[in-house]
Design a protein around this nucleic acid. Structure first.
Length: 261
DNA sequence: TTTACTGTTAGGAC
DNA sequence: TGTCCTAACAGTAA
């Protein structure tokens, strides 16, 4: 379920379980239609150790000061598992990094929308992708520009990784729900005050989810995440949660307290 | 059996 | 030129 908080949880898992161990091999699962490192890329990593991790938006990186990096994107259904040899393997493991000793790093991805590749420089990669600032780091002015200068739907702007990186369908809905903004509202129609409120809500929501390790059941009961159902009761007014498409994405909102301007 | 889905991106419309 | 929108990707689950 990967947006920024899930990527951050995965990064933390790498940080605690996959550093300072010599890479001894790789095992490939069923890999048709997937972007995974080819033989030559895997060969570059053999015998090296990862010593640090990074994350930018939904993009995860693990590498070292001067060596190549592994870039991991979880796609729609990817996850990382740090396990030991002999542990019972879940289904849909697409790539395993085998460290000396028993430690194993597994990339699981049923739907195969994720990707892993070997890259030389993280900052170059981020620039080449055209990613905006990380959603937890972006400053007030940059956020106001990213949202307030778009003619399209505010939700689409939140979702644009080029404007700011890390927000996906679930947490964009959550932030708009909390701030009472209709996902279809034009970004350029919002007052500066509302955009400021949206920025704070976005940051607080993402940070809260990060703090739970992206465990949804630990999030407060009144969050939209627990009632993404057409017809559910709104927790902020007497309204009813309603489903609609915004920018091609399924969106849940309360038409009573979420307004256009 | 049909429909929808938490992300990205190419291609086309405006 | 830029911005925005849609469809497609693959597999599973409801």
């Amino acid at each position: 379920m990967p947006e920024l908080p899930e990527a951050e949880a995965a990064r933390a898992r790498l940080e605690s379980g996959a550093l300072h161990r010599t890479i001894a091999g790789f095992a490939l699962g069923e890999v048709t239609h997937m972007d995974l490192p080819d033989e030559a890329s895997r060969e570059r990593l053999m015998g090296t150790q990862f010593t640090r991790t990074r994350r930018h938006g939904k993009y995860i990186f693990i590498g070292s000061v001067d060596g190549p990096w592994l870039h991991i994107h979880l796609g729609m259904s990817g996850s990382l598992r740090v396990m030991d040899a002999g542990d019972e393997l879940p289904d849909y493991i697409r790539l395993t990094v085998e460290f000396e000793g028993d430690r194993r790093l597994h990339f699981r991805d049923p739907r195969k929308f994720g990707r892993i590749e070997v890259i030389d420089d993280v900052d170059d990669f981020i620039a080449a992708k055209g990613l905006g600032p990380d959603a937890l780091e972006i400053g007030d002015n940059a956020f106001a520009d990213a949202i307030g200068r778009t003619r399209g739907a505010v939700k689409s702007a939140l979702l644009s990784q080029k404007k700011l990186a890390g927000i996906g369908n679930l947490w964009s809905d959550e932030a708009l729900y909390r701030t009472g903004i209709d996902p279809d509202a034009r970004g350029s129609d919002l007052t500066q005050e509302r955009i400021g409120t949206l920025h704070r809500a976005t940051r607080e929501i993402l940070q809260s989810v990060v703090d739970t390790g992206a465990t949804y059941s630990k999030l407060p009961d009144d969050w939209l995440i627990h009632r993404r159902d057409d017809g559910a009761a709104c927790t902020r007014c007497d309204g009813t949660i309603t489903k609609k498409k915004v920018g091609g994405r399924t969106s849940y909102h309360c038409p009573d307290h979420q307004t256009g301007t």
